[in-house]
């Protein structure tokens, strides 16, 4: 083979490769252009915006302020004066973080217990499809409708309080208007709405447990509870880990329920990270500061994601 022919061959390969790449790009283009403009660029700009100040109006009004936004949201001056207690006790961000963390810490285990219990009950029973649909239904029904329904039901003279009174407990406060109960009403609605979703994940995982394992336990004389504790639960570990990570992330992003049921109140009792972002940006027109808060959210979510990735191996191997 002469050198010219080899070169020609190479040239041909190059052209073919080029053609293939072009075809591939033509497949990607419709989605990628939209994705780049509306997602990728904003993601890249997100950090930058937190260093600017913008009160609406023209884009040219963006003003570089460095780390000022962060100093404001972390209440740097006051914290330096009065200590870290001020941040968690008084500063908006501290309170939003505290509320969000409390909500997460309560909601995640509660939802997991409910979802797992439902899945265990539904596993290998007739009529499972019907019940599965019922338990899943709250998850697809629209937020505004179910939140307003719940907030009516939780009113001072609503059906929930009537039920509680019928049990002989003296309780006649409106849940969403009471500063200690408000966050619990949000937790209640969240657990009720999401348990069906995670139940589906658990059901899938339960079906993946090899039958021999439970049978062997039965032969060894283990009762149902022991079986659950020593066979089923360890087998579900990867799912539980995955579910909790997903749920923690979605808990930190909570907005809808709060916005519809309590609007962050009463006072700041249910102020969450995202409701805080919304208020700063779209009510008070402080976009730079709101961006700085959303960076706090980003750091939290990314940290959780990184923890997930680094421990995924450990959990899926046993």
């Amino acid at each position: 083979m002469s050198q010219a022919e080899v070169r020609k061959g190479r040239y041909k390969m190059g052209r073919l490769e080029k053609k293939n790449t072009l075809i591939a790009y033509s497949f990607l283009a419709p989605n990628f252009i939209g994705f780049a403009v509306f997602t990728l660029i904003p993601v890249i700009c997100a950090v930058a915006l937190s260093l600017f100040e913008w009160g609406g109006g023209d884009i040219s009004r963006l003003k570089f302020v460095g780390l000022d936004n962060y100093a404001t949201i972390f209440a740097a001056k006051k914290v330096a004066e009065k200590g870290i207690g001020y941040f968690f006790g008084r500063a908006d961000l501290g309170i939003a973080l505290k509320n969000t963390a409390f909500y997460t810490v309560v909601t995640v285990p509660l939802t997991i217990v409910c979802a797992l219990a439902l899945a265990m009950l539904l596993n290998k029973i007739r009529g499972a499809v019907f019940f599965r649909t019922v338990f899943f239904f709250p998850y697809v029904s629209s937020m505004v409708a179910i939140c307003v329904c719940w907030s009516f039901m939780l009113m001072r003279n609503g059906p929930v309080n009537q039920f509680i009174m019928a049990l002989g407990i003296d309780f006649n406060k409106g849940w969403t208007a009471d500063s200690t109960m408000a966050i619990w009403s949000i937790i209640l609605v969240s657990v009720w709405r999401n348990m069906g979703y995670y139940m589906v994940l658990y059901l899938a995982a339960l079906q993946g447990i090899p039958r021999e394992l439970t049978e062997a336990a039965t032969v060894d004389g283990a009762n149902k509870w022991q079986q659950f504790l020593h066979v089923t639960l360890p087998q579900l570990k990867p799912t539980t880990f995955f579910v909790s990570v997903m749920m923690v992330i979605s808990c930190f992003k909570i907005y809808d329920v709060v916005a519809i049921m309590t609007e962050g109140g009463p006072g700041r009792a249910t102020k969450m990270l995202v409701t805080y972002i919304y208020d700063e940006a779209f009510v008070k027109n402080r976009y730079g500061q709101a961006s700085a808060i959303s960076m706090v959210l980003l750091v939290i979510v990314l940290a959780i994601t990184i923890i997930q990735f680094s421990s995924e191996k450990k959990f899926s191997n046993d």
């Binding site: 994705f35 990728l40 904003p42 700009c45 997100a46 913008w54 960076m295 990314l302």
Partner: peptide, 26 residues
């Protein structure tokens, strides 16, 4: 490119909705 896609799934929308909003407005 695929990494770009996957990467943005991990970023919560609330973290970049503001630059997105400013862009959409302009």
């Amino acid at each position: 490119l695929f990494l770009c896609y996957i990467g943005t799934i991990a970023v919560p929308w609330q973290a970049y909705m503001l630059p997105q909003f400013i862009m959409m407005r302009s």
